[in-house]
Amino acid sequence: MELLNDMALFVEVVNAKGFRRAAEATGIPNSTLSRRISALEKAIGLRLLHRTTRKIELTEAGQRYFERCRRIVDEARLAHEHLGDMLAQPSGVLRASLPVDFATTYLAPLIAEFAHLYPGITFDLDLTSRRVDLVSEPFDVAIRIGESEPSHLIARPLTTFTPHLYASPRYLDQAGEPDTPEALQQHRCLGMLKATAWTLHAGTRTVTVPVSGRFLLNSMGMIRRLATLDMGIVLMPDELVADELAQGTLRRLLPHWHGAPQPVYAVTETRLLPAKTQRFIEFLRERLGRE
C-alpha cells in the first residue's frame, strides 16, 4: 500500500510538472514529496527524475515507469470507486417489525420507494401488534409508536403524530356534533382496549373526558373503518385518516383540541448497524420528517 501511495505521488508530481505545484494540489509539503520520490527511486533502483531549481524532467526509465504507474493508479482509483458504489448500494435481508395499521396505511408507499432505491435489499416484514423482543428474535429494526423503551434498546426518533377527533358526516347528522370536549361523554366513542378516557389539549388547557361506546378494539384500522360506517367518534392521527378525509367519509371535530403527541421511532438492539438497516432508518427519518 505504501508503494502504491508513492507511485500515486510520483504521478502527481509529473502531472503537475514540479514539486511545488504538486504540493499545492495534494497539501503535502514540498520537502516531503521530494523525500518520498527519492525513497521510491531507491526502492526500485531507478533514477526517475532530473531535478533542477526551475523544473523536473523524466529520465528515460522514468518515462516508462510513469506510464506504468499511471495505469496502476488509474486501475486502483476505479476499483476504489467501484467499492464505493457497492457500499452505497447495501444488500441482504432487512427484517423489520412494523405496527399493522401504520404499516399498511402509511408506511407501504415509503417501503415501496425504498425498495426501488435499493434493489439489492430484500424484505422480511412482520406486521404485528405485539411487542417483539429485539434481543432474542432476529429483527434488525422495529418501528414503534408512542411506547417507552427499555434502556438497553436504542430508540431513534423519526417523527411525531398528533391525534385529532373525527367522525362520519352521517353519524354527526344522527347524533349531533359535540361543541366541547365534555360533550363527548354523550357520544359513542371508538377506542383502543382499556382506553376509558381521552385527554385533550388546546393551548395551555387540558381536559380529561370519560368515553365509552359499544366497541373496544385492538386495531386502529378496524376503528377507522367503523368510524366511516357511522359507528362513532375516533381519536386518531391525521396521517392515518388522510384518505378518509380526502374522500369525505370522515370529518374533523373540535379543531382546536388534540390528543397527546405520539412519537414514532425506530428501535434497534445496538448502535452498530449494517448498511441496510442504517439506510432504512435514515430514509424513514427523511421522509417522515417532511410530513
Rank of each mutant, 00 (worst) to 15 (best):
I143H: 01
L254G: 07
M220N: 15
D101Q: 07
Q247I: 03
S129R: 14
L4W: 02
N5F: 06
L253N: 03
S91V: 11
T277V: 13
A167Y: 00
A242L: 10
L117E: 15
P263L: 00
L4K: 14
E113V: 06
D133K: 09
R95S: 15
L49S: 03
S168H: 04
L125D: 09
E57Q: 13
P90R: 03
T249S: 15
Q247C: 02
L3W: 02
C69Y: 00
R271A: 13
A79F: 00
V234G: 02
G18T: 13
R188C: 10
V209Y: 05
P163S: 07
L117M: 15
R224G: 09
K276N: 06
L110Q: 11
P90T: 06
E182P: 03
E244Y: 00
L284R: 03
H164G: 10
S168I: 05
A88K: 14
P210N: 12
L40Y: 01
V211K: 09
A96Y: 00
H164Q: 11
L226I: 08
T204A: 14
E286I: 06
R70G: 01
I145G: 07
V135A: 07
H256Q: 14
L229E: 15
Q247Y: 02
R287Y: 03
A175L: 05
T206N: 01
P138N: 06
R287K: 15
A246F: 08
E182R: 15
T104V: 12
D124T: 11
A266D: 03
F19R: 02
D179I: 13
A175V: 09
R287I: 04
A242P: 00
A108G: 12
S151F: 01
P255M: 04
G18N: 11
Y265F: 11
A275F: 05
M7C: 07
R285V: 03
L200C: 11
A39M: 07
Y166M: 06
G259I: 08
L273R: 03
H116E: 15
T228E: 09
Y106T: 14
A23T: 09
G248T: 10
A25R: 15
A266R: 04
R71I: 12
G18I: 11
D230L: 02
Y166D: 09
V11L: 10
Q247V: 04
A260W: 02
A79Q: 10
D179Y: 06
L288W: 00
F283K: 05
P138K: 08
G213N: 07
R170C: 02
L49H: 03
F139W: 13
L134K: 04
A202R: 15
T249E: 04
S31D: 13
P255T: 07
A108S: 14
M231H: 14
Q278M: 09
T59E: 04
L172N: 05
L158T: 04
T105M: 09
L172A: 04
K42P: 02
A155L: 13
V11M: 08
H258R: 14
V14M: 03
L110N: 10
V14I: 14
S91T: 15
T206W: 00
